[in-house]
Design a binder for these strands. Sequence first.
DNA 1: CGAATGCTTGACTGCGGTCAAACGATGTGG
DNA 2: CCACATCGTTTGACCGCAGTCAAGCATTCG
Lengths: 260, 260
Amino acid sequence: MDMSAAPRMPTETRSLGNAIGSELLLRRLRRLVSLNGAEINLVLSLNEGAKTHGPGSMICPKADGSPHPRLIASGWACRPRILPDGRRQMLNVLLPGDLIGDRGERRPLAMNPAVALTTVRSISASKLYDALLSKPDEYPQLCAALGRIDRMQESHLLDHIVRLGCQTALQRTAHCLLELHARLEAIGFTHDGTFPMPLTQETLGDLLGLSLVHVNRIMAQLKRDSLIRIRSGVAIVEDFTALALLADRVDPTSRGAPEH
Amino acid sequence: MDMSAAPRMPTETRSLGNAIGSELLLRRLRRLVSLNGAEINLVLSLNEGAKTHGPGSMICPKADGSPHPRLIASGWACRPRILPDGRRQMLNVLLPGDLIGDRGERRPLAMNPAVALTTVRSISASKLYDALLSKPDEYPQLCAALGRIDRMQESHLLDHIVRLGCQTALQRTAHCLLELHARLEAIGFTHDGTFPMPLTQETLGDLLGLSLVHVNRIMAQLKRDSLIRIRSGVAIVEDFTALALLADRVDPTSRGAPEH
DNA sequence: CGAATGCTTGACTGCGGTCAAACGATGTGG
DNA sequence: CCACATCGTTTGACCGCAGTCAAGCATTCG
Protein backbone atom coordinates (compact mmCIF):
# COMPACT_ATOMS: atom_id res chain seq x y z
CA MET A 1 0.00 0.00 0.00
CA ASP A 2 2.94 2.22 -0.59
CA MET A 3 2.40 5.06 -2.97
CA SER A 4 6.04 5.54 -3.78
CA ALA A 5 6.68 1.96 -4.78
CA ALA A 6 3.72 1.93 -7.16
CA PRO A 7 4.60 4.88 -9.28
CA ARG A 8 2.41 6.62 -11.76
CA MET A 9 -0.05 3.95 -12.65
CA PRO A 10 -2.59 3.89 -14.54
CA THR A 11 -1.22 1.34 -16.93
CA GLU A 12 -3.15 -0.24 -19.72
CA THR A 13 -3.28 -3.98 -19.23
CA ARG A 14 -4.77 -6.75 -21.28
CA SER A 15 -8.10 -7.95 -20.06
CA LEU A 16 -7.17 -11.25 -18.54
CA GLY A 17 -9.42 -12.18 -15.66
CA ASN A 18 -10.77 -8.68 -15.65
CA ALA A 19 -14.24 -9.79 -16.60
CA ILE A 20 -14.80 -10.56 -12.95
CA GLY A 21 -15.60 -6.88 -12.57
CA SER A 22 -18.68 -7.27 -14.69
CA GLU A 23 -19.65 -10.40 -12.83
CA LEU A 24 -19.51 -8.45 -9.63
CA LEU A 25 -21.84 -5.84 -11.03
CA LEU A 26 -24.12 -8.54 -12.34
CA ARG A 27 -24.33 -10.19 -8.95
CA ARG A 28 -25.26 -6.88 -7.43
CA LEU A 29 -27.88 -6.11 -10.04
CA ARG A 30 -29.53 -9.49 -9.75
CA ARG A 31 -30.16 -8.87 -6.09
CA LEU A 32 -32.29 -5.94 -7.12
CA VAL A 33 -34.16 -7.12 -10.21
CA SER A 34 -34.37 -10.12 -12.51
CA LEU A 35 -32.58 -9.37 -15.74
CA ASN A 36 -33.41 -10.78 -19.15
CA GLY A 37 -30.87 -12.43 -21.40
CA ALA A 38 -29.97 -9.34 -23.35
CA GLU A 39 -29.38 -7.43 -20.16
CA ILE A 40 -27.17 -10.12 -18.69
CA ASN A 41 -25.18 -10.30 -21.88
CA LEU A 42 -24.74 -6.57 -21.99
CA VAL A 43 -23.38 -6.47 -18.47
CA LEU A 44 -21.11 -9.46 -18.96
CA SER A 45 -19.77 -8.03 -22.20
CA LEU A 46 -18.05 -5.26 -20.27
CA ASN A 47 -14.38 -6.02 -20.43
CA GLU A 48 -12.85 -3.26 -22.49
CA GLY A 49 -10.42 -0.61 -21.46
CA ALA A 50 -9.12 -2.30 -18.36
CA LYS A 51 -6.78 -0.18 -16.30
CA THR A 52 -4.84 -0.57 -13.11
CA HIS A 53 -4.50 2.41 -10.81
CA GLY A 54 -1.92 2.56 -8.08
CA PRO A 55 -2.91 3.81 -4.63
CA GLY A 56 -3.20 7.56 -4.63
CA SER A 57 -3.69 7.89 -8.35
CA MET A 58 -6.78 9.33 -9.94
CA ILE A 59 -9.16 6.88 -11.49
CA CYS A 60 -11.47 9.28 -13.11
CA PRO A 61 -9.69 12.51 -13.89
CA LYS A 62 -12.15 15.01 -15.18
CA ALA A 63 -9.31 16.48 -17.16
CA ASP A 64 -11.09 18.56 -19.74
CA GLY A 65 -14.56 17.34 -20.41
CA SER A 66 -16.49 14.40 -19.12
CA PRO A 67 -14.74 11.49 -17.51
CA HIS A 68 -15.99 8.37 -19.20
CA PRO A 69 -18.00 6.02 -17.03
CA ARG A 70 -16.05 3.16 -15.56
CA LEU A 71 -16.73 0.14 -13.41
CA ILE A 72 -14.54 -0.61 -10.44
CA ALA A 73 -13.55 -4.23 -10.85
CA SER A 74 -11.50 -4.51 -7.69
CA GLY A 75 -10.00 -2.33 -4.99
CA TRP A 76 -11.27 0.62 -3.01
CA ALA A 77 -11.43 4.27 -3.98
CA CYS A 78 -12.94 7.48 -2.71
CA ARG A 79 -13.94 10.96 -3.76
CA PRO A 80 -11.97 13.49 -1.76
CA ARG A 81 -12.49 17.19 -1.46
CA ILE A 82 -9.31 18.96 -0.50
CA LEU A 83 -9.34 22.24 1.39
CA PRO A 84 -6.72 24.92 0.93
CA ASP A 85 -5.32 24.28 4.40
CA GLY A 86 -4.65 20.67 3.49
CA ARG A 87 -7.61 19.11 5.22
CA ARG A 88 -9.48 16.45 3.33
CA GLN A 89 -13.07 15.37 3.44
CA MET A 90 -14.18 12.23 1.71
CA LEU A 91 -17.56 12.54 0.08
CA ASN A 92 -17.80 8.91 -0.71
CA VAL A 93 -16.22 5.50 -0.64
CA LEU A 94 -16.19 3.48 -3.84
CA LEU A 95 -16.18 -0.29 -3.70
CA PRO A 96 -15.85 -3.04 -6.30
CA GLY A 97 -18.96 -3.13 -8.45
CA ASP A 98 -19.46 0.63 -8.14
CA LEU A 99 -19.87 2.73 -11.25
CA ILE A 100 -18.11 6.06 -11.52
CA GLY A 101 -17.74 8.82 -14.04
CA ASP A 102 -20.16 10.82 -16.06
CA ARG A 103 -23.17 9.29 -17.74
CA GLY A 104 -24.15 12.37 -19.65
CA GLU A 105 -25.78 14.16 -16.75
CA ARG A 106 -22.67 15.86 -15.42
CA ARG A 107 -23.78 15.37 -11.86
CA PRO A 108 -21.38 17.03 -9.46
CA LEU A 109 -20.68 13.90 -7.43
CA ALA A 110 -20.01 11.89 -10.56
CA MET A 111 -17.74 14.64 -11.85
CA ASN A 112 -15.71 14.70 -8.66
CA PRO A 113 -12.36 13.02 -9.15
CA ALA A 114 -12.08 9.54 -7.73
CA VAL A 115 -8.82 8.50 -6.12
CA ALA A 116 -7.63 4.95 -5.63
CA LEU A 117 -7.04 3.99 -2.00
CA THR A 118 -5.71 0.53 -2.76
CA THR A 119 -4.61 -0.81 -6.08
CA VAL A 120 -7.71 -0.51 -8.22
CA ARG A 121 -8.61 -2.28 -11.41
CA SER A 122 -11.32 -0.68 -13.50
CA ILE A 123 -12.94 -1.32 -16.85
CA SER A 124 -14.78 0.97 -19.18
CA ALA A 125 -18.52 1.18 -18.81
CA SER A 126 -19.09 3.44 -21.79
CA LYS A 127 -20.56 0.58 -23.75
CA LEU A 128 -23.11 0.00 -21.03
CA TYR A 129 -24.32 3.56 -20.87
CA ASP A 130 -24.21 4.03 -24.61
CA ALA A 131 -26.51 1.07 -24.97
CA LEU A 132 -28.84 2.25 -22.26
CA LEU A 133 -29.05 5.77 -23.58
CA SER A 134 -29.60 4.76 -27.18
CA LYS A 135 -32.18 2.03 -26.64
CA PRO A 136 -33.38 2.01 -23.05
CA ASP A 137 -36.49 0.02 -23.93
CA GLU A 138 -34.42 -3.09 -24.55
CA TYR A 139 -33.01 -3.04 -21.05
CA PRO A 140 -35.89 -2.13 -18.76
CA GLN A 141 -34.84 -4.02 -15.67
CA LEU A 142 -31.24 -3.00 -16.08
CA CYS A 143 -32.23 0.66 -16.17
CA ALA A 144 -34.34 0.18 -13.09
CA ALA A 145 -31.58 -1.56 -11.20
CA LEU A 146 -28.96 1.04 -12.09
CA GLY A 147 -31.39 3.71 -11.02
CA ARG A 148 -31.77 2.01 -7.70
CA ILE A 149 -28.03 1.84 -7.29
CA ASP A 150 -27.88 5.56 -7.95
CA ARG A 151 -30.55 6.16 -5.39
CA MET A 152 -28.74 4.08 -2.80
CA GLN A 153 -25.65 6.13 -3.40
CA GLU A 154 -27.58 9.34 -2.86
CA SER A 155 -29.09 7.82 0.23
CA HIS A 156 -25.63 7.10 1.58
CA LEU A 157 -24.73 10.70 0.96
CA LEU A 158 -27.63 11.84 3.08
CA ASP A 159 -26.62 9.37 5.76
CA HIS A 160 -23.17 10.85 5.62
CA ILE A 161 -24.57 14.30 6.29
CA VAL A 162 -26.44 13.07 9.33
CA ARG A 163 -23.37 11.25 10.59
CA LEU A 164 -21.17 14.29 10.30
CA GLY A 165 -23.81 16.70 11.49
CA CYS A 166 -25.01 15.18 14.70
CA GLN A 167 -23.36 11.99 15.75
CA THR A 168 -20.49 11.40 18.12
CA ALA A 169 -17.26 9.88 16.90
CA LEU A 170 -18.27 6.50 18.25
CA GLN A 171 -21.67 6.55 16.57
CA ARG A 172 -20.25 7.78 13.30
CA THR A 173 -17.65 5.08 13.20
CA ALA A 174 -20.11 2.35 14.02
CA HIS A 175 -22.59 3.58 11.47
CA CYS A 176 -19.99 3.88 8.77
CA LEU A 177 -18.60 0.42 9.38
CA LEU A 178 -22.09 -1.01 9.20
CA GLU A 179 -22.67 0.77 5.93
CA LEU A 180 -19.49 -0.70 4.52
CA HIS A 181 -20.53 -4.13 5.73
CA ALA A 182 -23.92 -3.85 4.07
CA ARG A 183 -22.44 -2.64 0.81
CA LEU A 184 -19.84 -5.35 0.74
CA GLU A 185 -22.49 -7.92 1.50
CA ALA A 186 -24.31 -6.88 -1.68
CA ILE A 187 -21.33 -8.06 -3.69
CA GLY A 188 -20.69 -11.16 -1.63
CA PHE A 189 -17.55 -9.88 0.06
CA THR A 190 -18.64 -10.70 3.58
CA HIS A 191 -18.43 -13.96 5.45
CA ASP A 192 -20.47 -13.91 8.64
CA GLY A 193 -19.37 -10.63 10.06
CA THR A 194 -15.97 -10.61 8.40
CA PHE A 195 -15.18 -8.24 5.59
CA PRO A 196 -12.15 -6.64 3.98
CA MET A 197 -11.32 -3.22 5.44
CA PRO A 198 -8.27 -1.76 3.73
CA LEU A 199 -8.95 1.80 4.85
CA THR A 200 -6.18 3.43 6.80
CA GLN A 201 -7.16 5.04 10.07
CA GLU A 202 -6.10 8.31 8.53
CA THR A 203 -8.43 7.75 5.60
CA LEU A 204 -11.22 6.76 7.94
CA GLY A 205 -10.62 10.01 9.74
CA ASP A 206 -10.91 12.00 6.52
CA LEU A 207 -14.13 10.18 5.82
CA LEU A 208 -15.65 10.63 9.26
CA GLY A 209 -14.39 14.11 9.93
CA LEU A 210 -12.15 12.90 12.74
CA SER A 211 -8.44 13.07 13.41
CA LEU A 212 -6.24 10.07 12.89
CA VAL A 213 -5.55 9.88 16.59
CA HIS A 214 -9.15 9.95 17.57
CA VAL A 215 -10.11 7.29 15.07
CA ASN A 216 -7.53 5.11 16.70
CA ARG A 217 -9.02 5.70 20.14
CA ILE A 218 -12.48 4.88 18.85
CA MET A 219 -11.28 1.70 17.20
CA ALA A 220 -9.56 0.75 20.43
CA GLN A 221 -12.79 1.31 22.31
CA LEU A 222 -14.81 -0.71 19.83
CA LYS A 223 -12.31 -3.52 20.16
CA ARG A 224 -12.25 -3.25 23.95
CA ASP A 225 -16.05 -3.45 24.07
CA SER A 226 -16.02 -6.43 21.70
CA LEU A 227 -18.17 -4.76 19.06
CA ILE A 228 -15.85 -4.91 16.08
CA ARG A 229 -12.16 -5.22 15.47
CA ILE A 230 -9.97 -4.53 12.48
CA ARG A 231 -6.61 -6.14 11.97
CA SER A 232 -4.44 -6.41 8.92
CA GLY A 233 -7.08 -5.21 6.54
CA VAL A 234 -9.92 -7.38 7.78
CA ALA A 235 -12.81 -6.28 9.94
CA ILE A 236 -14.59 -8.71 12.24
CA VAL A 237 -17.98 -7.78 13.60
CA GLU A 238 -18.29 -9.34 17.02
CA ASP A 239 -21.56 -7.88 18.23
CA PHE A 240 -23.82 -6.90 15.41
CA THR A 241 -26.84 -5.81 17.38
CA ALA A 242 -24.82 -3.72 19.81
CA LEU A 243 -23.10 -2.05 16.91
CA ALA A 244 -26.39 -1.34 15.19
CA LEU A 245 -27.87 -0.05 18.42
CA LEU A 246 -24.95 2.29 18.83
CA ALA A 247 -25.14 3.59 15.30
CA ASP A 248 -28.84 3.49 14.85
CA ARG A 249 -30.81 6.58 14.30
CA VAL A 250 -33.66 5.19 12.28
CA ASP A 251 -36.73 7.29 12.62
CA PRO A 252 -39.67 5.92 10.65
CA THR A 253 -41.19 9.33 9.96
CA SER A 254 -38.03 10.84 8.60
CA ARG A 255 -36.95 8.02 6.37
CA GLY A 256 -36.97 8.22 2.62
CA ALA A 257 -38.73 5.69 0.50
CA PRO A 258 -38.70 2.24 2.11
CA GLU A 259 -37.10 0.54 -0.86
CA HIS A 260 -34.50 2.37 -2.87
CA MET B 1 -43.43 32.06 13.35
CA ASP B 2 -45.37 30.29 16.02
CA MET B 3 -46.36 26.75 15.29
CA SER B 4 -49.16 26.69 17.81
CA ALA B 5 -50.87 29.84 16.63
CA ALA B 6 -50.93 28.70 13.01
CA PRO B 7 -52.76 25.46 13.41
CA ARG B 8 -52.90 22.61 10.99
CA MET B 9 -52.38 24.28 7.70
CA PRO B 10 -52.16 23.26 4.73
CA THR B 11 -55.29 24.99 3.51
CA GLU B 12 -56.40 25.08 -0.10
CA THR B 13 -56.63 28.67 -1.24
CA ARG B 14 -57.68 30.21 -4.49
CA SER B 15 -54.83 31.22 -6.74
CA LEU B 16 -54.90 34.96 -6.37
CA GLY B 17 -51.50 36.53 -6.73
CA ASN B 18 -49.95 33.10 -6.47
CA ALA B 19 -48.63 33.19 -9.99
CA ILE B 20 -45.64 35.11 -8.67
CA GLY B 21 -44.22 31.73 -7.74
CA SER B 22 -43.90 30.80 -11.38
CA GLU B 23 -42.40 34.20 -12.18
CA LEU B 24 -39.77 33.54 -9.57
CA LEU B 25 -38.88 30.24 -11.16
CA LEU B 26 -38.85 31.88 -14.55
CA ARG B 27 -36.47 34.57 -13.38
CA ARG B 28 -34.18 31.91 -12.04
CA LEU B 29 -34.31 29.82 -15.20
CA ARG B 30 -33.60 32.76 -17.46
CA ARG B 31 -30.35 33.40 -15.65
CA LEU B 32 -29.25 29.97 -16.78
CA VAL B 33 -30.55 29.65 -20.34
CA SER B 34 -32.64 31.54 -22.85
CA LEU B 35 -36.08 30.01 -23.07
CA ASN B 36 -38.30 29.94 -26.11
CA GLY B 37 -41.92 31.10 -26.09
CA ALA B 38 -43.43 27.71 -25.41
CA GLU B 39 -41.09 27.20 -22.50
CA ILE B 40 -41.89 30.56 -20.96
CA ASN B 41 -45.59 29.93 -21.33
CA LEU B 42 -45.31 26.53 -19.75
CA VAL B 43 -43.54 27.92 -16.71
CA LEU B 44 -45.87 30.88 -16.34
CA SER B 45 -48.92 28.65 -16.67
CA LEU B 46 -48.12 27.07 -13.32
CA ASN B 47 -50.74 28.35 -10.95
CA GLU B 48 -52.76 25.33 -9.97
CA GLY B 49 -53.12 23.68 -6.62
CA ALA B 50 -51.93 26.57 -4.53
CA LYS B 51 -51.55 25.77 -0.85
CA THR B 52 -50.47 27.59 2.24
CA HIS B 53 -48.46 25.73 4.85
CA GLY B 54 -48.07 27.01 8.38
CA PRO B 55 -44.65 26.93 10.02
CA GLY B 56 -43.81 23.44 11.14
CA SER B 57 -46.21 21.71 8.81
CA MET B 58 -45.15 19.30 6.13
CA ILE B 59 -45.19 20.57 2.59
CA CYS B 60 -44.50 17.40 0.82
CA PRO B 61 -45.70 14.48 2.84
CA LYS B 62 -44.62 11.29 1.20
CA ALA B 63 -47.72 9.72 2.71
CA ASP B 64 -48.13 6.56 0.68
CA GLY B 65 -46.60 6.87 -2.73
CA SER B 66 -44.86 9.69 -4.48
CA PRO B 67 -45.33 13.24 -3.33
CA HIS B 68 -46.31 15.29 -6.34
CA PRO B 69 -43.80 17.88 -7.44
CA ARG B 70 -44.45 21.37 -6.16
CA LEU B 71 -42.91 24.79 -6.53
CA ILE B 72 -42.24 26.90 -3.49
CA ALA B 73 -43.79 30.25 -4.28
CA SER B 74 -42.81 32.00 -1.07
CA GLY B 75 -41.40 31.21 2.34
CA TRP B 76 -38.59 28.98 3.55
CA ALA B 77 -38.61 25.26 4.20
CA CYS B 78 -36.13 22.51 4.95
CA ARG B 79 -35.67 18.76 4.84
CA PRO B 80 -35.01 17.51 8.34
CA ARG B 81 -33.82 14.13 9.47
CA ILE B 82 -34.84 13.39 13.01
CA LEU B 83 -32.84 11.04 15.22
CA PRO B 84 -34.41 8.88 17.88
CA ASP B 85 -32.81 10.96 20.64
CA GLY B 86 -34.54 14.06 19.35
CA ARG B 87 -31.62 15.60 17.54
CA ARG B 88 -32.30 17.05 14.13
CA GLN B 89 -30.10 17.43 11.10
CA MET B 90 -31.22 19.54 8.19
CA LEU B 91 -30.21 18.06 4.87
CA ASN B 92 -31.26 21.08 2.94
CA VAL B 93 -32.81 24.50 2.94
CA LEU B 94 -35.57 25.22 0.44
CA LEU B 95 -36.12 28.73 -0.82
CA PRO B 96 -38.73 30.39 -3.02
CA GLY B 97 -38.36 29.18 -6.57
CA ASP B 98 -37.16 25.76 -5.46
CA LEU B 99 -38.83 22.63 -6.75
CA ILE B 100 -39.62 19.80 -4.40
CA GLY B 101 -41.26 16.42 -4.55
CA ASP B 102 -40.87 13.45 -6.78
CA ARG B 103 -40.43 13.72 -10.52
CA GLY B 104 -40.70 10.06 -11.23
CA GLU B 105 -37.17 9.19 -10.16
CA ARG B 106 -37.90 8.62 -6.47
CA ARG B 107 -34.63 10.15 -5.47
CA PRO B 108 -34.10 9.90 -1.74
CA LEU B 109 -33.56 13.60 -1.20
CA ALA B 110 -36.68 14.45 -3.17
CA MET B 111 -38.63 11.85 -1.23
CA ASN B 112 -37.55 13.27 2.11
CA PRO B 113 -40.36 15.22 3.72
CA ALA B 114 -40.08 18.98 3.50
CA VAL B 115 -41.15 21.06 6.47
CA ALA B 116 -42.15 24.70 6.35
CA LEU B 117 -39.98 26.97 8.47
CA THR B 118 -41.99 30.09 7.81
CA THR B 119 -45.43 30.35 6.29
CA VAL B 120 -44.96 28.78 2.88
CA ARG B 121 -47.06 29.11 -0.22
CA SER B 122 -46.61 26.43 -2.85
CA ILE B 123 -48.17 25.54 -6.17
CA SER B 124 -48.35 22.31 -8.05
CA ALA B 125 -45.61 21.60 -10.55
CA SER B 126 -47.10 18.36 -11.86
CA LYS B 127 -48.10 20.07 -15.08
CA LEU B 128 -44.52 21.12 -15.65
CA TYR B 129 -43.02 17.70 -15.20
CA ASP B 130 -45.82 15.95 -17.06
CA ALA B 131 -45.10 18.16 -20.04
CA LEU B 132 -41.35 17.64 -19.83
CA LEU B 133 -41.64 13.90 -19.49
CA SER B 134 -44.13 13.45 -22.29
CA LYS B 135 -42.49 15.72 -24.89
CA PRO B 136 -39.05 16.79 -23.77
CA ASP B 137 -38.05 17.79 -27.27
CA GLU B 138 -40.37 20.77 -27.19
CA TYR B 139 -38.67 22.22 -24.16
CA PRO B 140 -34.94 21.69 -24.66
CA GLN B 141 -33.63 24.71 -22.82
CA LEU B 142 -36.09 24.23 -20.01
CA CYS B 143 -34.91 20.68 -19.49
CA ALA B 144 -31.32 21.86 -19.47
CA ALA B 145 -32.00 24.60 -16.97
CA LEU B 146 -33.93 22.35 -14.61
CA GLY B 147 -31.10 19.85 -14.86
CA ARG B 148 -28.66 22.55 -13.87
CA ILE B 149 -30.80 23.48 -10.91
CA ASP B 150 -30.77 19.85 -9.85
CA ARG B 151 -27.03 19.75 -10.19
CA MET B 152 -26.61 22.89 -8.13
CA GLN B 153 -28.70 21.33 -5.43
CA GLU B 154 -26.51 18.24 -5.41
CA SER B 155 -23.48 20.47 -5.35
CA HIS B 156 -24.83 22.21 -2.26
CA LEU B 157 -25.27 18.82 -0.65
CA LEU B 158 -21.61 18.06 -1.22
CA ASP B 159 -20.68 21.46 0.15
CA HIS B 160 -22.76 20.63 3.18
CA ILE B 161 -20.76 17.47 3.75
CA VAL B 162 -17.50 19.37 3.62
CA ARG B 163 -18.84 22.02 5.96
CA LEU B 164 -19.96 19.49 8.52
CA GLY B 165 -16.96 17.27 8.08
CA CYS B 166 -14.06 19.62 8.43
CA GLN B 167 -14.86 23.21 9.09
CA THR B 168 -15.05 25.08 12.36
CA ALA B 169 -18.30 26.60 13.54
CA LEU B 170 -17.20 30.01 12.33
CA GLN B 171 -16.28 28.77 8.87
CA ARG B 172 -19.42 26.72 8.54
CA THR B 173 -21.62 29.61 9.45
CA ALA B 174 -19.90 31.99 7.10
CA HIS B 175 -20.01 29.51 4.25
CA CYS B 176 -23.64 28.71 4.81
CA LEU B 177 -24.68 32.35 4.94
CA LEU B 178 -22.82 33.00 1.71
CA GLU B 179 -24.58 30.09 0.08
CA LEU B 180 -27.92 31.48 1.14
CA HIS B 181 -26.94 34.88 -0.18
CA ALA B 182 -25.96 33.44 -3.54
CA ARG B 183 -29.12 31.41 -3.84
CA LEU B 184 -31.32 34.34 -2.90
CA GLU B 185 -29.47 36.51 -5.36
CA ALA B 186 -30.50 34.12 -8.13
CA ILE B 187 -34.13 34.99 -7.47
CA GLY B 188 -33.55 38.68 -6.93
CA PHE B 189 -34.08 38.64 -3.19
CA THR B 190 -30.89 40.47 -2.31
CA HIS B 191 -30.18 44.16 -2.28
CA ASP B 192 -26.48 44.93 -2.01
CA GLY B 193 -25.59 42.59 0.78
CA THR B 194 -28.99 42.57 2.40
CA PHE B 195 -31.18 39.53 2.28
CA PRO B 196 -34.07 37.99 4.21
CA MET B 197 -32.92 35.52 6.86
CA PRO B 198 -35.90 34.09 8.71
CA LEU B 199 -34.02 31.12 10.12
CA THR B 200 -34.05 30.78 13.86
CA GLN B 201 -30.70 30.32 15.52
CA GLU B 202 -31.97 26.95 16.65
CA THR B 203 -32.77 26.01 13.06
CA LEU B 204 -29.39 27.26 11.92
CA GLY B 205 -27.89 25.04 14.57
CA ASP B 206 -29.76 22.02 13.25
CA LEU B 207 -28.53 22.88 9.80
CA LEU B 208 -24.90 23.44 10.74
CA GLY B 209 -24.61 20.69 13.31
CA LEU B 210 -24.15 23.19 16.12
CA SER B 211 -25.97 23.91 19.33
CA LEU B 212 -28.30 26.86 19.61
CA VAL B 213 -25.99 28.51 22.12
CA HIS B 214 -22.94 28.17 19.98
CA VAL B 215 -24.68 29.54 16.91
CA ASN B 216 -25.49 32.56 18.97
CA ARG B 217 -21.86 33.02 19.98
CA ILE B 218 -20.74 32.70 16.38
CA MET B 219 -23.30 35.24 15.23
CA ALA B 220 -22.14 37.58 17.96
CA GLN B 221 -18.57 37.18 16.80
CA LEU B 222 -19.48 37.79 13.18
CA LYS B 223 -21.31 40.91 14.22
CA ARG B 224 -18.46 42.07 16.48
CA ASP B 225 -15.99 41.61 13.64
CA SER B 226 -18.30 43.50 11.27
CA LEU B 227 -18.62 40.64 8.80
CA ILE B 228 -22.35 40.11 8.81
CA ARG B 229 -25.23 40.82 11.13
CA ILE B 230 -28.75 39.48 11.33
CA ARG B 231 -31.56 41.34 12.98
CA SER B 232 -35.30 40.88 12.80
CA GLY B 233 -35.18 38.45 9.94
CA VAL B 234 -32.79 40.41 7.74
CA ALA B 235 -29.13 39.69 7.16
CA ILE B 236 -26.68 42.44 6.25
CA VAL B 237 -23.34 41.48 4.81
CA GLU B 238 -20.84 44.08 5.93
CA ASP B 239 -17.59 42.62 4.68
CA PHE B 240 -18.08 40.32 1.78
CA THR B 241 -14.47 39.51 1.02
CA ALA B 242 -13.59 38.83 4.64
CA LEU B 243 -16.59 36.54 4.91
CA ALA B 244 -15.63 34.70 1.74
CA LEU B 245 -12.05 34.43 2.90
CA LEU B 246 -13.22 32.94 6.16
CA ALA B 247 -15.51 30.44 4.50
CA ASP B 248 -13.46 29.73 1.47
CA ARG B 249 -12.09 26.37 0.77
CA VAL B 250 -12.00 26.44 -2.97
CA ASP B 251 -9.44 24.09 -4.36
CA PRO B 252 -9.24 24.12 -8.13
CA THR B 253 -8.22 20.51 -8.44
CA SER B 254 -11.03 19.20 -6.28
CA ARG B 255 -13.84 21.17 -7.79
CA GLY B 256 -16.59 19.62 -9.81
CA ALA B 257 -17.49 20.90 -13.25
CA PRO B 258 -16.89 24.63 -13.55
CA GLU B 259 -20.42 25.38 -14.66
CA HIS B 260 -23.27 23.43 -13.20
C1' DC C 1 -50.69 42.38 31.43
C1' DG C 2 -48.76 37.58 31.17
C1' DA C 3 -47.28 33.82 27.99
C1' DA C 4 -44.59 32.34 24.40
C1' DT C 5 -40.80 32.59 21.43
C1' DG C 6 -36.34 33.74 20.34
C1' DC C 7 -31.91 35.93 21.66
C1' DT C 8 -28.02 36.68 24.89
C1' DT C 9 -24.81 35.69 28.50
C1' DG C 10 -22.00 33.06 32.01
C1' DA C 11 -20.03 28.97 34.20
C1' DC C 12 -18.66 24.48 33.62
C1' DT C 13 -17.57 20.20 31.21
C1' DG C 14 -15.95 17.06 27.90
C1' DC C 15 -15.26 15.43 23.26
C1' DG C 16 -12.12 15.49 20.09
C1' DG C 17 -7.82 17.98 18.06
C1' DT C 18 -2.89 18.72 18.32
C1' DC C 19 1.76 17.67 19.43
C1' DA C 20 5.15 14.35 20.29
C1' DA C 21 7.18 10.07 20.69
C1' DA C 22 7.53 5.27 20.30
C1' DC C 23 6.36 0.80 18.35
C1' DG C 24 5.41 -2.78 14.78
C1' DA C 25 5.32 -4.20 10.24
C1' DT C 26 7.06 -4.24 5.60
C1' DG C 27 10.32 -3.47 2.09
C1' DT C 28 14.66 -2.02 0.02
C1' DG C 29 19.42 -1.70 -0.83
C1' DG C 30 24.18 -2.37 0.60
C1' DC D 1 21.48 -10.62 6.49
C1' DC D 2 21.21 -6.49 8.63
C1' DA D 3 20.61 -1.32 8.54
C1' DC D 4 17.54 1.81 7.44
C1' DA D 5 13.35 4.08 5.64
C1' DT D 6 8.62 4.21 5.29
C1' DC D 7 4.05 3.55 6.57
C1' DG D 8 0.57 2.63 9.76
C1' DT D 9 -0.75 2.06 14.51
C1' DT D 10 -0.63 3.11 19.37
C1' DT D 11 -0.17 5.86 23.53
C1' DG D 12 0.25 9.99 26.66
C1' DA D 13 -0.13 14.85 27.78
C1' DC D 14 -2.31 18.94 26.98
C1' DC D 15 -5.63 22.17 25.20
C1' DG D 16 -9.48 24.39 23.04
C1' DC D 17 -13.78 24.31 20.54
C1' DA D 18 -18.22 23.49 21.18
C1' DG D 19 -22.04 21.27 24.12
C1' DT D 20 -24.77 21.55 28.28
C1' DC D 21 -27.09 23.70 32.04
C1' DA D 22 -29.14 27.65 33.80
C1' DA D 23 -30.63 32.28 33.99
C1' DG D 24 -31.96 36.49 32.36
C1' DC D 25 -33.49 39.73 28.47
C1' DA D 26 -36.27 41.34 24.46
C1' DT D 27 -40.25 41.06 21.39
C1' DT D 28 -44.36 39.90 20.02
C1' DC D 29 -48.98 38.59 20.62
C1' DG D 30 -53.30 37.48 22.71
